[in-house]
Design a binder for these strands. Structure first.
Lengths: 257, 257
DNA sequence: CGACCGATTGACACAGCTCAAATGAAGTGG
DNA sequence: CCACTTCATTTGAGCTGTGTCAATCGGTCG
């Protein structure tokens, strides 16, 4: 798990959310980090806790999940390197869900106090993180739609498409191919289906020649066909970068009256 | 539809998100508002648009929705008076979903420019709105769980519980009884089920003596039983008010080391 | 009165679930 | 290097919750 400077993928993502100054980058670099290693399937933050730090994913994957009737699991989000998985703990407590590792993972903890100080010093960063929060909202809206109105094969294909693009953004996927240490049961719990049916759907995607899936390695072989089955459109991921600003006014240029 | 001062319910909600000063309240009161009336089932903001203003609900209800394969509708959120339904347009464009009225509704449009200026002038307000965004995230996580892992009757009961509490917070529900101009098809599209099945579920809830539902009027007759069926817990709604602050430090008091 | 819309009902079909067992792959310890 | 365990994947066989289709009923409004 090559990591480079620990905050490099975070910066990479933030640069696409807002224009950052050298000063902003400096502030990020100065954040006090506590790096921690976790093995597969460990709970990093538990439902009900009120942590005083945020969790930045450096390597590997985290996922957020809730339980229904104390048993059935629903995965509500995946987090990839460069993501802050529990930014909301900055403003909400206690945690309404748990955060676990998919496979082995490396994370960095950032104390709330230092993080808030950083936000106070840079309105640009504060804006970038708020925008990041809005993008997470958009992703969850798409997940609600996915679970509410698509059949099993579309759900699975949709989740795979989303992960491919999110990983591509941080250079962890090339040619629509990426490694992720999940099981078919994990995928099932993200898609709201049973593990048995997840298996059948994966086999169907393989049979159609659309997706390869060999232990931990996923490859989308026919992007157009898969996005069609998944009813996938990338607009909600806001990959386009920061909204244009009018350099004279320093404000967003609105495209409408 | 009595409205009082247009921003009164918004203030009411914000007060629970952060401690506001007289100056903050003044800033809210000074926001330039354009009030508009809509009739039932009108699109207030359309998917793909890039509005330059936010939409505050004054009276009635809005809902956000997406379409799958261009036809099947999924409702992703309900908005009640005091809610800003499209705060994210402040930072994201174009819109990834549409915003429509459930019944007749009164809204106020607030120009982005004025809104941003207000946020620049008050870190407390900026924090309150960011926190509001995090609460919306929590609500969507719960919806994902609802659609992914609960059966039809639990989904319906869950949505009803959530609305009751959210409306109670702005004095639009008393004794777990509220009016909302939705149809069973609207409820079905929020729960990811068919309208026919929504009807059967509603009848079942009536038969069990748990919920009354006479054209537009919903009453929860047995809160404990309904929350049990719905697997409902209100923690995700963050009704508890703003996190306590240490008055000396002016920082959040963290409950954990 | 006719048109329309939402609620309701019935009959039937099927996607996806559950249960259970088999197979395969990857350690682990002797 | 082989038994043994463990965990993920795969397969099969029924079962059921929910969808679809179509018709009816009831209220409301012009």
């Amino acid at each position: 798990m090559e990591i480079g400077r620990p905050y490099s993928r975070l910066l990479q993502r933030l640069e696409k959310l807002n224009t950052l100054s050298a000063h902003d980058r400096q502030l990020i670099a100065e954040l006090p980090l506590t790096v921690a290693n976790f093995s597969a399937n460990e709970e990093v933050v538990r439902h009900g806790e009120s942590p005083s730090r945020c969790t930045l994913v450096l390597g590997g994957f985290l996922y957020g999940h809730k339980r229904v009737n104390g048993s059935r699991r629903q995965i509500t989000s995946f987090f990839v390197p460069g993501d802050i998985a529990d930014l909301h703990t900055l403003h909400l407590a206690p945690l309404d869900h748990s955060l676990s590792t998919l496979g082995p993972a490396v994370v960095a903890f950032m104390p709330h106090a230092a993080f808030r100080e950083m936000l106070d010093r840079s309105p640009q960063l504060a804006e970038a993180f708020w925008r990041d929060t809005f993008i997470r909202l958009a992703i969850l809206r798409e997940w609600v739609t996915n679970l509410g109105r698509r059949d099993a094969i579309a759900r699975v294909a949709h989740v795979i498409c989303e992960l491919a693009l999110r990983l591509q953004r941080v250079d962890l996927a090339q040619d629509l191919c990426f490694s992720i240490p999940w099981t078919q049961t994990d995928l099932a719990d993200a898609c709201g289906i049973s593990n048995v049916h997840a298996n059948r759907v994966v086999q169907e995607l393989r049979r159609l020649g659309l997706v390869e899936w060999d232990s931990r390695k996923v490859r989308i072989r026919d992007w157009d066909a898969v996005t069609k089955i998944a009813d996938f459109s990338d607009e909600y991921l806001q990959l386009g970068g920061p909204a244009k600003r009018d350099p004279l006014l320093g404000q967003k240029v609105s495209e409408h009256a």
